[in-house]
Design a protein around this nucleic acid. Structure first.
Length: 404
DNA sequence: GAGTTTGAAACT
DNA sequence: CAGTTTCAAACTC
């Protein structure tokens, strides 16, 4: 087991000035009930020496009532300042805080959410040079009824930034829904070790400490099928793509690798690629990008075609939906009710003569292509990209089939 | 390979 | 949420 994710939250710490008006405060409070997101940081005992954790990161415990329907408590802890069990302290003057022994990590700051929500945190070493700074906030109670029965909406939320404490040049994704957990996933958060109080603070056992989860349990339970990372792991070996991104750093959906939950590879010709896991920070950055996009659209990394139908449909206005500009055609399905394409122009439908001709043409080109290259040394086979765009034949129901 | 077209993604 | 811009792929020459 080399890597696994933690389930972390970003509990916002903030100062009064950061929340400008009552609306914002109300919004803030509502989001606060359920803020949580995945962290890309995957420390285990073996890797802990070199791991970095973003400041303000929180781990989450949430226990559920007997029906497993409601959150009865969430306890999170800021990693802005942390102490390990040996009493050594790391402070978050920098964006990343390094730990020597992640497995013994415990947190200085804790947040308890229940019917009454009290946020007590103590900030050590703010960036203005103060060596210690204490603050206690009490947030208006949030009724548990706001947490929908049977599901928990997870919110990615970053606090408004205080220029005093944070680098305002860092761009943070806006708060938004990350994902929805069904009640049958409640066990994801059931702590094996109980939280406890220590010196008047709520202490959350580190999810990485021994006995909390076995690695296999942890990984299994923390990655749903919707996790891009798991999709990456489960990807079919022949799922090949490459990109030529020049500006997106391969961390936006513009990038075909990234959007397909794939890491960029040597096949790519991208510029300043960040879609890799070469360092913990890079891995973290990639996961943050994934999380931010999922926050906007939870299905962003889902399969584009399900049951022979494009999940969102296309919006072609200039096309007749028979070229790969059309998302439906690209993925080998006919257009349908979800599409916004021109009903007059669209020729990508079952029984379309134009579609039949196009399919025949592509198949013909494919045969021609195969004939050409079958006469060559197989070792001289061209790269994947040179197959494009006719390396497949088109089937409206099973998509582009790569001729064997 | 350079230039154009296209619609999704991102942004405002 | 609608209008606009950006982006990288698809396509043409």
């Amino acid at each position: 087991m080399s890597r696994y994710n933690s389930f972390d939250t970003y509990i916002p710490s903030y100062e009064e000035d950061d929340l400008m008006d009552e609306d914002e405060k109300h919004k803030f409070n509502n989001l606060f009930t359920t803020c949580a997101t995945f962290s890309p940081i995957k420390p285990n005992r073996e890797e802990a020496q070199s791991q970095y954790v973003r400041a303000e990161e929180f781990s989450v415990d949430a226990s559920f009532d007997s029906e497993g329907l409601n959150i009865s408590s969430i306890t999170g802890a800021s990693a802005f300042t942390v102490t390990n069990l040996s009493g050594n302290r790391s402070t978050g003057e920098e964006e990343f805080v390094s730990y020597n022994d992640m497995s013994d990590l415990s947190f200085e700051f804790d947040v308890k959410l229940s019917n009454d929500i009290n946020v007590n945190y103590k900030e050590a070493s703010p960036s203005d040079g103060d060596l210690s700074h204490s603050m206690t906030e009490t947030i208006e109670p949030i009724p548990l009824a706001e947490i929908k029965k049977g599901q928990v909406d997870l919110i990615f939320l970053e606090s408004p930034r205080s220029s005093r404490r944070y680098d305002t040049n860092i761009v943070h994704p806006p708060p938004a829904i990350v994902s929805t957990l069904k009640s049958n996933q409640a066990h994801l958060f059931t702590p094996i070790q109980k939280n406890h109080q220590e010196n008047g603070r709520f202490v959350t056992p580190s999810p990485f400490s021994q006995g909390y989860y076995s690695h296999s349990q942890y990984q299994y339970h923390h990655f749903s099928n919707s996790s891009p990372r798991i999709q990456h792991q489960k990807q079919q070996p022949n799922k090949i793509t490459s990109c030529n991104c020049s500006k997106s750093k391969c961390l936006k959906l513009y990038c075909s690798c990234f959007s397909g939950s794939l890491l960029c590879s040597s096949r790519c010709s991208c510029n300043d690629c960040h879609n890799n896991e070469e360092t913990p920070q890079r891995s973290y950055e990639r996961q943050r990008a994934i999380t931010a996009i999922q926050a906007m659209n939870p299905n962003a990394f889902s399969e584009k075609v399900k049951n022979g139908k494009h999940t969102t449909g296309c919006s072609c206005s200039k096309e007749i939906c028979l070229r790969k500009y059309c998302d439906c055609f690209k993925f080998g399905v006919t257009c349908g009710p979800l599409c916004n394409c021109s009903k007059e122009k669209c020729k990508n439908f079952q029984g379309s003569e134009e579609l039949r001709e196009k399919t025949a043409k592509m198949t013909k080109n494919k045969r021609k292509y195969l004939k050409k290259y079958s006469t060559l040394d197989s070792n001289a086979a061209p790269s994947f990209r040179s197959y494009s765009p006719y390396s497949y034949y088109y089937s409206p129901y099973s998509g582009y089939q790569k001729n064997a």
